[in-house]
Design a protein around this nucleic acid. Structure first.
Lengths: 335, 335
DNA sequence: TTGTATGCGTTATCAG
DNA sequence: CTGATAACGCATACAA
């Protein structure tokens, strides 16, 4: 078969332990011998067998990112993961998890219980699945949350300032003279959606504006959700002069609906979104958005996980990144 | 530590080989004994150690999809990969490859040479990198191409009818009365771009229309590429009445530019694209597109690769899927 | 500084 | 049909 550590040792005239030392860059090898071994390694084209190493060390050198569904959030998250993936010693396995499918369940169960991964990062709403969370905790697998719905149990997590971002964006709209603001909400069982909602309400209150139930539409954080909600909003006797979509997809749906209705953005209606992951700048006239710092979140969560895996100390167990507002063409002062 | 095959054997009062047989669903075990073993496995919560299995079988049960850059093509490809990922016995590692970065090179080299993967699917333009291709061939690693630039060397590949798709779409535009069609080309060193270009030209010829160099703009297959090219096209003394973008991103850029110029789509200019991966239906007024069958391509290529890995016969070594045209709001008869 | 011997948890061989 | 035992390739106590 292929060349092993033993072949190298024989040819170099030393023991396998010495070769092992050289390969793993341990101390206590005379430069002379080290060079000889290195030469033989090069000559024979020796590469360590990762499976053997994994077996004896009981480590997989693989970490997993768990996703649910797919959308622009997932896409931009994955982009960042891929960028991280070719650095470092770990392979990053991107895996979807659909609680409803038993195949999906058994796949992740196998990943966790067979110790095929050294650690796990979960993204919302995976962390709201009790089966999964329970399994992770039982297994004592190193685990980091991204934007968890329930940041309980002491699991480290990385998140963003959803509340503040929504608050600031709402204030900006109010500052532009918009007092009737439509809100396209996400599902209420998502923490991020809730935080954004609270931020929105707080900004209204702060400016002595009442929260109008009629203007806050429950919708899914996707294109059809935003599309339908906008149709409803604009059909009201007193339609809003601005719409705040709590996701990029919903904003895209809203814009499509507004176009269809012949309503000019931003002159007749201003539109803003929360996320700014994907094509917010590519859809005419460019959507003003709260930028959600996915990249930093992903990078940080992976970094934290690896520290956990390698048993290195974690200075902080919660990290919350600030959001920023990106101004584009979809907002204007109320006429 | 954790429970091993030996523990199960001891408790069940049989040999480890028998346990192994039960676990691997081999024949030659009396139902009685099998049940007893199964019961113990369940009781002890035994799960086989994948690393040990990998070591002894010299297999990793992991396959890799190699990507270059990121865009909507990659995104929709990844979506499909993720759907496949929780089925089957293989983990699918999604990996980017940037030939310019030595870290990226050494990562993929390690993946291949240390046999950390059992097989590899490459996507364009990875297959145009000689270093990579050479390495793959040297290693004799099972390998399948997706839409290769140079389908040489007998490597199995899966692709789509780029030529025909472009031909048909062009004919459709001509049928709508468009005789001056702007073409937003991708980079010329991509086979798919070339095939699409040839299809476009063939349709023109077939309809006795001359290919106008001025209307065919070299641009990258991305948003700025399409944006800039469209600005150029519409600045011509005789601008086109229709634009054919050879990628979704370029089409989005084109649409943005047209909006910015105050040109109505489709009334003043028709716009079509090739790909239909991402948001073609989410950008007003919906972009008529040639649908590129990514999902089928990905599924098929993974299936072929696994056959290769498992040494099962491959009935076909080249598969080329047809494209279809999706009609949306961005095309109209020339006024 | 270097080497020996043992074990990691499987699968596979071959005898019973 | 079943089981003892030998690999697989590496890391690591421990000995020299």
């Amino acid at each position: 078969m292929s060349v092993t550590i033993r072949d190298v040792a024989k040819k170099a005239g030393c023991s396998i332990k010495t070769v092992s030392r050289v390969v793993n860059q341990e101390a206590h090898v005379t430069p002379d011998l080290r060079d000889r071994v290195l030469a033989v390694i090069d000559e024979l084209g020796y590469v360590p067998n990762i499976s053997a190493r994994r077996l004896v060390q009981n480590r997989s050198y693989m970490i997993c990112i768990l996703l649910h569904a797919s959308g622009v959030f997932q896409s931009s998250l994955i982009s960042k993961v891929l960028d991280l993936g070719y650095e470092g010693n770990y392979d990053i396995l991107i895996q979807t998890y659909y609680p409803a499918f038993s195949r999906s369940q058994s796949k992740i169960a196998s990943l966790i219980n067979e110790r095929r991964i050294d650690g796990l990062v979960t993204t919302p709403p995976c962390d709201s699945d009790p089966y999964l969370i329970n399994m992770i905790q039982q297994s004592k697998l190193p685990h980091v949350h991204i934007a968890p719905i329930n940041p309980t149990g002491g699991t480290p997590y990385v998140s963003a300032e959803d509340y503040t971002g929504a608050y600031q964006m709402t204030e900006r709209l109010i500052g532009l003279g918009h007092y009737r603001i439509g809100l396209l909400m996400g599902l209420r069982n998502h923490r991020t959606s809730l935080d954004r909602l609270y931020g929105f309400r707080a900004a209204l209150e702060r400016n002595d504006l009442a929260f109008n139930e009629q203007l806050a539409i429950d919708s899914e954080n996707n294109f059809p959700g935003g599309y339908n909600a906008t149709k409803i909003l604009m059909g009201l006797k007193q339609p809003p002069s601005a719409i705040f979509a709590l996701s990029d997809e919903a904003a895209a749906g809203a814009l499509f609906a507004l176009n269809e209705l012949g309503i000019k953005v931003p002159h007749q209606v201003s539109l803003v979104s929360f996320g700014d992951m994907g094509f917010s700048h590519q859809i005419w006239p460019g959507i003003t958005a709260v930028k959600y710092p996915v990249e930093q979140i992903v990078e940080q969560s992976v970094e934290m996980l690896i520290k956990l895996v390698e048993d290195r100390p974690l200075d902080v167990k919660q990290m919350i990144f600030p959001t920023t507002i990106i101004e584009r063409g979809s907002t204007a002062r109320k006429e």
